[in-house]
Design a protein around this nucleic acid. Structure first.
Lengths: 194, 194
DNA sequence: CATGGTTCTGAACGTTCAGTCCAAAACTTT
DNA sequence: AAAGTTTTGGACTGAACGTTCAGAACCATG
């Protein structure tokens, strides 16, 4: 009954995410988005509304997948919980972190001005806090972290370390240095082997 | 022999820094800068060159003062070194961190695209690494940190924690939570009292 | 007071921006 | 194959952008 879309909406959103991740919200023009997605402006506006709506869509999707990742990390045997935290902090060897996390880039650029963005970021950070706290508790039960320690504070510390590593990566600090710090972070909250 | 400047250049740079800190590079228009500094556009261009040159000036000054702060933190008795690290991580109580550090905002926004910015950021991070490593070594000599630990890795970990706290603050995480994490960070690298 | 040199000001310039619009193409259904 | 609907791409618009510039304002000197 009607002409179907020539493009895949999901692919377009991913292309837009890459573009926004590189050049930020204010640094990205609608023409940039048109080029990145391969869609003309007309199609872009028809499918997603204006630039801000497209950004919100991209950001929402990114946060949702971050939330899902946090939930997935909880799965697994308790005596590997500390390793899962370590793996989360570590970074693949050839990794160029300057093209980094959209959550970090967005909160830095927009959280101060835009309450919708600020609230969505905060919600994802809360999810991360919770996930890490639970992983710390798992590691405590497995005897890898001092059971007397405060799991909420240590979980928050892991999240903080993760965000700090992300910030350093954006500045161009090398993967080897980042991983050394990641290991130091985990080792310093781990219980010495008796 | 000539009409003197009506404005104080240093004040103008500080006003521009506040503006850039809030709205970022691409999010700040020259009209915004004109309003923030109280200077007309012509004066701004006369005094600092174009928008990018003004930004570089502001950023350079910010990084230089961060470097100076890192050096200043080294001064003091060695048995207070760990406390100086703690104080650096902690945040004043009523603090609203969403108006945050220009270094963080700038690396997030521009390091990917602009090599000059990237190199300047990296240089300041190196200074921070060095400063924290030395403070860790001081604390080791004072017996507050295990002398067998790797001061380079622990110094890097403290810097990372600082950047992570900054990122969380930008997202709107409260001062109380931030300080709890800061304390956990220091406590976890400190040697238990014998 | 007049001159010369510098700074300040705001209007004006060309460019780029986000967003609109529509004729033509593309596709499905009948 | 014809009708009907949606997509598409690019020309278009007014506003906002960074930048420039001519003239007014100003101070120190002669």
């Amino acid at each position: 009954m009607a002409r179907p879309r020539k493009f895949d909406e999901q692919e377009a959103v991913e292309a837009a995410r890459r573009q926004f991740s590189e050049t930020g919200y204010h640094g990205t023009s609608v023409d940039d988005l048109s080029r990145a997605t391969g869609l003309s402006k007309g199609s872009l506006y028809g499918a997603f509304g204006d630039k801000e709506a497209l950004f919100q869509h991209v950001f929402e999707e990114y946060c949702t997948s971050a939330d899902a990742g946090a939930a997935a990390r909880l799965e697994g045997p308790e005596d590997e919980a500390l390793d899962r935290l370590r793996q989360w902090l570590r970074v693949p060897e050839g990794f160029d972190g300057r093209l980094g996390c959209l959550l970090a880039k967005t909160t830095a650029e927009l959280a101060w001005q835009n309450d919708t963005i600020a609230n969505r970021s905060l919600a994802t950070f809360d999810t991360l806090f919770d996930s890490c706290r639970q992983l710390v508790e798992q590691a405590q039960r497995a005897g890898h972290i001092d059971p007397a320690a405060d799991p909420e504070a240590l979980g928050g510390l892991v999240v903080t370390t993760h965000r700090g590593l992300e910030a350093l990566a954006k500045a161009g600090v090398g993967a080897q240095t980042l991983n050394r710090i990641a290991d130091a972070a985990i080792d310093s909250i781990a219980q010495p082997i008796p």
